[in-house]
Computed example of a mutant assay.
Amino acid sequence: MIVEMFFEDYEIGTERTSFGRTITEADIVLHAGQTGDFFPHHMDKEWCATQDFKRRVAHGTLVFSVGIGMTASTINPHAMSYGYDRLRFVRPVHIGDTITVRAAITEKRDHPKRNTHGFIVEAIEITNQDGETVLVCDHLYLVKRKQPAD
């Protein structure tokens, strides 16, 4: 779906929440193959059983990628992702855990060099099926203005 929004249209406090998505063994195996990260924490069930966490852990980068993908429901031709700040893997995600994403607009600021654009900051919080936070980050969007800033 295409939704046209300019910098001026975004409101601090606006939130959206995704549906849930269960992380599977196939997700972990595919991500390991794509990234080359075959550490035993992700791949070796028997080794994990000897560790404090007792079971395989999804890659943090997998949880991040899946979670951000879960928020990608619209296309705004006036905005683009500028990147992510303050990314933290707060708790492990295991095979069979279901994650949900909440995204909230927390900040609007001027672009330091271009008066035709501004930055929107969206706080991302990914939680598991128990409501525990597993990942947080700030998503930065570069968004075109309707009118140049003074």
Rank of each mutant, 00 (worst) to 15 (best):
Y84T: 06
T50R: 15
Y84L: 15
R16Y: 02
E11Q: 10
L135Q: 09
D44G: 01
V136Y: 02
K108R: 13
T50W: 12
R56P: 00
P148W: 04
T22N: 01
E8A: 03
E4C: 08
E4M: 09
T71I: 13
T133M: 09
H31N: 10
S73H: 07
F119S: 12
V63W: 01
A26E: 11
R55M: 01
D85M: 13
E15M: 08
I124W: 04
P92M: 10
L62D: 01
R55P: 00
I126C: 02
F38R: 00
A72W: 07
F89M: 14
H117I: 13
T98W: 09
R145Q: 11
D27I: 03
F19N: 13
F64N: 09
T14A: 09
Y82L: 13
F7G: 06
T100Y: 15
P112R: 14
G83Q: 10
M80R: 11
E11R: 03
I126W: 01
G67S: 14
H94Q: 05
H111Y: 00
V134T: 07
V29H: 08
I28C: 08
R56W: 00
T74F: 06
S73P: 00
H78L: 06
H41C: 06
K108L: 15
V134I: 04
R102Y: 02
Q34C: 12
G83K: 09
T61Y: 05
V134C: 11
F39D: 11
T14S: 08
R102A: 11
C48T: 04
Y84V: 07
F38M: 01
S65D: 07
D27Y: 05
G20I: 07
R16G: 13
F39P: 00
E4H: 05
M5I: 00
E8M: 03
H139G: 10
H139W: 12
T71L: 15
K108Y: 04
R114N: 14
T22P: 03
R16C: 09
K144I: 04
F39T: 04
F53I: 14
M43D: 02
Q51P: 04
R21D: 06
A26Y: 02
D27N: 10
R21P: 09
V63N: 03
V143R: 11
F7Q: 07
M70C: 06
S81N: 14
V121N: 09
E122L: 03
D9K: 03
F6Y: 15
